[in-house]
Structure formats: C-alpha cells, structure tokens
Amino acid sequence: MNVLLVCSMGASTASMCKRIDAAAAAEGMELTTTAVPMAMMGDKIDWADVVLIGPQIRFMLEKVSASAKGKPVEAIDMMAYGTMDGAKVLAQIKGMI
C-alpha cells in the first residue's frame, strides 16, 4: 500500500513517514509512505492508495479529495501528529482502507 502525506512544506510529514513506517514494520505490514508539500501533490497523487494531509492544512481537505479522484483522504489526527505517534496514524490508515 502506498500512503501519501501532504503538508504545507513537507518537512514535518517526512518525520511522520518514518514513524508510520516503523509502526508498520513492527506489525509486519508492507507500507510505503512519502511526504510532499502541497505544491507538489499532483506529482504523487496517482501513486497513492491513501492520502493524509497535515492538520495545519486540513482546510484544504476538499481540494485534496477532488485531486485524489475517489481515493480515501483524511486529515491526520491532530494529537497523533503533534506527538509524532506513528502507531496511531497507522491505525487511522487502516481505518481508511
């Protein structure tokens, strides 16, 4: 499964990707995550099976959903993002599929 994380600049979501990858590996789940800034979302949206957006740009949810063409799109849980809780975000991903 391919998971795309979108945020305003892509830096903080890159750290979240590492946490999600670690949580998935601990569960033996095959998952590929990548983070991009909003401006580059179009380059990766077709690759993704699931799209998560950083809570700081949750107001862009409708725009991202329209670009995702029916793929599941959600804002990352604010508390999980703030604490960089990869396991909690992985649970959110599982709930989306």
Rank of each mutant, 00 (worst) to 15 (best):
Leu4Lys: 01
Val64Tyr: 14
Ala80Leu: 08
Ala25Gln: 07
Asp21Ser: 10
Trp47Thr: 03
Val36His: 10
Val64Lys: 14
Lys44Ile: 01
Asp21Trp: 02
Leu4Trp: 11
Ala39Thr: 14
Met60Trp: 09
Lys69Val: 02
Thr13Met: 05
Leu5Ser: 05
Ala87Cys: 07
Leu5Val: 04
Lys44Asp: 06
Ala11Pro: 05
Glu62Tyr: 02
Ala87Gln: 09
Leu5Trp: 10
Arg19Ile: 00
Ser65Thr: 13
Met78Lys: 09
Pro72Gly: 05
Ile57Glu: 01
Ala91Ile: 06
Ala23Asp: 14
Lys69Phe: 00
Gly28Arg: 02
Leu90Glu: 06
Phe59Gln: 13
Ile76Arg: 10
Met84Pro: 09
Thr32Ser: 11
Asn2Glu: 06
Gln92Tyr: 14
Pro55Trp: 09
Met1Ile: 00
Leu52Cys: 05
Ala39Leu: 03
Arg58Cys: 14
Leu61Lys: 13
Met1Phe: 08
Ala11Leu: 15
Met16Gln: 01
Ala24Leu: 06
Lys71Phe: 06
Ala48Gly: 02
Val3Lys: 03
Met16Glu: 08
Ser15Gly: 08
Lys63Trp: 01
Ala26Thr: 01
Asp77Met: 07
Lys44Pro: 00
Gly82Gln: 01
Glu62Val: 00
Ala11Val: 03
Gly95Asp: 11
Met79Gln: 07
Ala75Gly: 15
Cys7Arg: 10
Asp43Tyr: 04
Thr32Gly: 03
Ala23Thr: 06
Gln56Tyr: 04
Cys17Gly: 10
Leu90Phe: 09
Ser65Trp: 02
Asp85Leu: 13
Ala26Ser: 13
Ala66Lys: 06
Ile20Val: 15
Ile57Gln: 03
Gly10Thr: 10
Ala11Glu: 11
Ile93Cys: 08
Gly86Phe: 03
Ala14Ile: 00
Cys7Leu: 12
Gly28Met: 02
Ala91Ser: 15
Met40Tyr: 12
Ile45Leu: 07
Ser8Met: 15
Met29Arg: 08
Ile45Glu: 05
Ala91Arg: 14
Asn2Trp: 03
Gly42Asn: 12
Thr32Val: 14
Val6Phe: 09
Lys63Cys: 02
Ile53His: 07
Leu31Asn: 08
Met41Trp: 10
Gln92Ser: 13
Glu62Phe: 01
Ile20Asp: 05
Met38Leu: 11
Trp47Asp: 06
Glu30Trp: 03
Met29Ser: 05
Ala11Met: 12
Asp21Glu: 10
Glu30His: 11
Glu30Asp: 15
Ala26Asp: 05
Leu31Val: 04
Glu30Ser: 05
Thr33Ala: 04
Leu31Thr: 02
Gly70Tyr: 09
Gln92Pro: 08
Val51Phe: 00
Met9Phe: 07
Ser65Val: 02
Asp43Ala: 11
Ile93Pro: 04
Met41Thr: 15
Leu90Ala: 11
Asp85Lys: 03
Cys7Thr: 12
Val73Trp: 07
Ala25Arg: 08
Met60Cys: 04
Ala11Gln: 06
Gln92Glu: 14
Cys17Pro: 07
Trp47Ser: 02
Leu31Met: 13
Lys69Met: 01
Leu90Trp: 06
Ile57Leu: 13
Gln56Met: 13
Met60Val: 04
Met40His: 06
Met41Arg: 14
Lys18Gly: 09
Ala22Glu: 14
Ser8Thr: 11
Ala25Tyr: 04
Gly42Pro: 01
Ala14Lys: 12
Val3Tyr: 13
Thr13Asn: 04
Gly86Ser: 11
Met78Ala: 12
